[in-house]
């Protein structure tokens, strides 16, 4: 190598080292600056949900039906493409003699939502009250969020549908990802999510919804008393849907 080559090489090498050292730091700094957990302490409201799997029964689908009507969640008659914002799941421990339980599974509105971290266009965002939402006008439909969500809480709109039951909830055309919003449009009107309302009214009263930042709320009392657990808490995402009895 000639002297000139060596000098170029050293300069580029130095630049590369500085670049690789600084770039991730700057990127992460920016990423954490827009910390989604900010509202956990500062916001008045922090919505969460508890599900009592001792009460929930396998043959009841009041919550999923109410959600489908409320949020125009599309059904195509093909399980591969049907939308699901909330679904009923039956779990049976692999150990002998244990009995199975039925429970609803929905978006956990994580404090650290991986779907939001991976979204290339920041279409997924966390509201101040902790609800994780998708801006359907910004979503490009790349489906990276569906890859990143450990709860399979997101579905893709595989084709257009004509049926829209509730005019209060915006239509989603094909090509975007959608998921549970904790019925943000109802919460903003002072109501509770339609699944919880349906469960209370005609179901098994297995769902408690409320404000995790209000020490006097029913949900905070419930959590204090029963210590329900989130799903896959080992992943460190701090889900805000808790389950009692599994």
């Amino acid at each position: 190598m000639s002297e000139l080559d060596r000098r170029i090489f050293l300069k580029l090498g130095a630049a590369a080292v500085i670049g690789t050292t600084l770039a991730p730091g700057i990127t992460l700094f920016q990423a954490f600056a827009q910390d989604e957990t900010e509202g956990r302490t500062s916001s008045k409201d922090r919505w969460g949900m508890v599900i009592d799997t001792n009460k929930c029964t396998a043959d009841c689908t009041e919550c999923t039906a109410a959600c489908r009507t409320e949020n125009n969640v599309p059904l195509f008659g093909d399980p591969r493409y049907d939308g699901h914002w909330i679904r009923k799941v039956t779990v049976t421990p692999k150990t002998d003699g244990a009995h199975s339980r039925s429970l609803p599974l929905l978006c956990n509105h994580c404090e650290h939502p991986p779907c939001q971290h991976v979204c290339p266009v920041a279409a997924t965002f966390t509201r101040e009250d902790g609800i994780v939402m998708i801006d359907k006008h910004r979503c490009i439909g790349c489906r990276y969020c569906m890859i990143a969500c450990p709860y399979k809480a997101r579905t893709f709109v595989f084709k257009n549908t004509e049926k829209w039951s509730n005019p209060d909830v915006p239509k989603r055309g094909k090509g975007v990802v959608e998921k549970c919003t904790f019925c943000a449009h109802r919460i903003d009107k002072g109501q509770i999510p339609s699944c919880v309302e349906a469960c209370n009214k005609s179901g098994e009263k297995a769902m408690v919804f409320g404000n995790l930042n209000d020490p006097n709320s029913e949900i905070v009392q419930y959590i204090r008393e029963h210590a329900p657990k989130g799903l896959r808490e080992d992943l460190g995402l701090e889900p805000k849907v808790f389950y009692k009895g599994i």
Binding site: T27, L28, Q30, A31, H117, V118, C119, P120, V121, A122, A123, R138, C139, I140, G141, C142, R143, Y144, F156, V157, K174, G175, V176, V177
Partner: peptide, 22 residues
């Protein structure tokens, strides 16, 4: 492969530095 390829310009103006896609 995007559901909305017509939104090709969105990633240029809406960046998420934490996303490996971005």
């Amino acid at each position: 492969d995007w559901g909305k390829p017509e939104r090709i310009l969105v990633p240029f103006f809406s960046i998420n530095p934490r996303s490996m896609f971005s």
